[in-house]
Design a binder for these strands. Structure first.
Lengths: 153, 153
DNA sequence: TATTTAACCTATAGATTTACTAGGGTATTT
DNA sequence: AAATACCCTAGTAAATCTATAGGTTAAATA
């Protein structure tokens, strides 16, 4: 039930872009992004390609070029990122809504395993398809500011 | 975020044992169990060993021997089975309560990814640590009987 | 226009995990 | 004693994961 490094790095990278999101949003180079997040540069490059193809990030070539979010952080869901990078959220293919494939049980409708895994899929998607980069950034800033408070007398 | 074949087969096998659970509970041979559930015999054998070591199944050697549940199906949770066979339920090690290992973010407390994954872990465990073999068997029988009804005029 | 910069693209390679398979050992029953 | 059925260790082919290498293309700037 693991999130791959691919998925983890992808989310960290986009989260980093979301943290920088000002108006106008600045570009950051692959090199800089990888260093800041401690991700192998060439691996991150591989990860950014499908994210760009899916329309989540915008890129610009040449000097001063780099990466930024292609749309507001409020509109980018963690679920989408994981589906793009890791394939699906459901624990088994036969209960996936976005990447369905039959399993080998005689009848999926009456299969006990499928029932439970469908529940798990619903629970996972309920979170990941409703959590945006923006909501994470906000939650994190709330946490950090409350920690500051507790340091003051 | 996938359930392995190992985990899938393990659950299917124990679910099969739970369906047979009468008083006294009969033994079923590895051979028969594997055939009924379409699982490779020698692979299933590997899967049953840790389940027995963990005290979920009882085995008996010799002619007429085989496998049965070691305790009531009401007391066997799907979460336990998956942890035994696949290692952990959490999507990343740093939010696992039963198999914690640090990740490489600078601070886990303020890591946005960790926060979300902790939510996911909670959602998954809320289901899998509260679903027993018995509850699945019951849910399945309710479904099947309601299907019978709808076939009658 | 030449040069530099930085993303783009294809291929590949090493490590790990997954999904099995093989074959002999051990306990139990008849 | 013979048959049965679980026990245990090892190994292996294929897939997947985690990168790495190296050249190509586009854009900015001098």
């Amino acid at each position: 039930m693991r999130l791959s490094k691919r998925g983890e790095y992808g989310i960290r990278a986009l989260l980093h872009l979301a943290e920088r999101a000002k108006e106008p949003q600045p570009l950051i180079s692959l090199q800089a992004l990888a260093e800041k997040e401690n991700i192998p540069v060439k691996f991150l490059e591989q990860i950014m390609i499908p994210l760009r193809n899916a329309g989540l990030v915008h890129t610009q070539k040449g000097p001063g070029g780099g990466y930024k979010l292609a749309k507001p952080a409020e509109q980018i869901f963690i679920g989408s990122i994981i589906r793009i990078l890791d394939g699906m959220l459901a624990p088994v293919t036969c209960v996936s809504k976005t990447a369905y494939a039959p399993c080998d049980c005689p009848d999926e409708k009456s299969c006990g395993l499928c029932m439970v895994m469908a529940d798990v899929r619903d629970a996972i998607t309920a979170i990941l398809d409703n959590t945006t980069l923006a909501s994470i950034v906000q939650r994190r800033s709330l946490l950090l500011s409350s920690q500051e408070d507790s340091n003051d007398p």
